[in-house]
Write a protein that binds this DNA or RNA. Structure first.
Lengths: 144, 144
DNA sequence: ATGTCACATTAGATATAGTCTAATTTTTTA
DNA sequence: TAAAAAATTAGACTATATCTAATGTGACAT
């Protein structure tokens, strides 16, 4: 992992590279499994220096605002986060709620008339269904 | 509002048409403003018969499972619901969190290779930016 | 008609996810 | 080095949603 690159991307977005903030960003760049805030909190606290829960949430908010991290809301479950590396779409499993990346492809914008007076910032494509782990066992209760 | 049609669509999905469930469905069909569960709870309790909070949530879950209602998760805010009438996409306002319908148009599916072993049920296009109310006043703090 | 059973509803307790507060620590700037 | 600004912290707090166990309701077989 390129520590300098992470530092530069934080500072390029106007964020100080504190140990706690760095740890969150580094964890998200190393893992593309779309962890929840609680998972990130736990993960960064397995290594020093320690980070409080509030700081983890603060830093996630800062990173999302800076455009370095994406937050994915999942119905009935905790939000998930991923570093915005390569562009991609998301697949959300109906059964286990896991979020997975889908190779990016271009999406047609809506007709400008239907956007009316709204200002469009981005558009996001979300696929739903059963992930590879859940697909073969439709009837089971498994949640991981 | 066609009460019989609502009754038929509930029963066609294997759901009994109870007064509370009917009230939730009717409210969603009459209002396309994507209310939260709390708003629906309050609305259906402005008319008799009364419905408890748990029942409102239960019925929303049942309606979503039956495919009659869609739940839209919004980051950092309560989930929103709408009756699946005509197909449409969604626009979510960055500032106020309101969800609005965008005229539907067809979206290209991912290459089957990138879906791998997943089973695709639906794909959903979400636009983000500023709604017509929030767009002109970027700097203000307004939340409605 | 009546008993039975599955389904639905209820109030309130509980769980989960995330935010806020006020004090402290760290970093930057003067 | 002093002062100001930014970040972190523990834990209280809020919002959202689910669960529990008791009660009510409607369907239907007898």
């Amino acid at each position: 992992m390129d520590a300098e690159a992470i530092k530069r991307s934080l500072e390029g977005s106007g964020l100080r590279c504190t140990p706690q903030r760095y740890a969150v960003m580094a964890f998200l760049m190393e893992h593309n499994r779309h962890p929840t805030a609680a998972e990130i909190f736990e993960a960064v606290n397995r290594v020093d220096p320690r980070s409080s829960r509030a700081t983890t949430y603060n830093n996630l908010r800062d990173l999302v605002q800076a455009g370095l991290v994406r937050e994915v809301a999942v119905e009935g479950r905790a939000a998930r986060f991923d570093a915005k590396g390569m562009r991609h779409h998301h697949f959300i499993c109906d059964r286990c709620g896991n979020v997975e990346d889908i190779e990016w492809y271009d999406v047609p914008r809506p007709a400008s008339g239907s956007l009316d007076k709204r200002i469009l910032r981005e558009c996001e494509l979300i696929f739903r269904g059963l992930c590879a782990k859940c697909a073969p066992r439709r009837a089971s209760r498994q949640l991981s």
